[in-house]
């Protein structure tokens, strides 16, 4: 388990960096995590994004593979 990633501040990345990261990886190598509310997700999300609304996140952390990089918005 990469525990350090849960203990260190998240690095902010701009659109270009994020796009390059997504384009350079296979779809199952990165987790794109959408923490908004379902209605916001429904209106538009990054393709392949997993929805875990922020209020549910503490109880659903187990659904996130800690071995993979997570892009969160």
């Amino acid at each position: 388990m990469k525990w350090m990633q849960f203990l260190t501040p998240a690095k902010s990345m701009g659109f270009k960096e994020i796009e390059a990261m997504i384009d350079g990886a296979k779809t199952d190598e990165i987790i794109i995590l959408d923490v908004r509310q379902p209605r916001e997700y429904q209106r538009g999300h990054i393709p392949g994004a997993m929805l875990i609304p922020l209020p549910e996140l503490p109880d659903r952390l187990g659904e996130i593979d800690p071995q993979k990089p997570v892009l969160v918005y």
């Binding site: 849960f6 701009g14 994020i18 538009g44 990054i46 393709p47 892009l71 918005y73």
Partner: peptide, 15 residues
């Protein structure tokens, strides 16, 4: 863990 700076509003790709 990486934060998408600006969130979905800053995303310029297809949604």
């Amino acid at each position: 863990m990486y934060n998408v700076s600006g969130g979905i509003k800053a995303w310029q790709g297809k949604t």
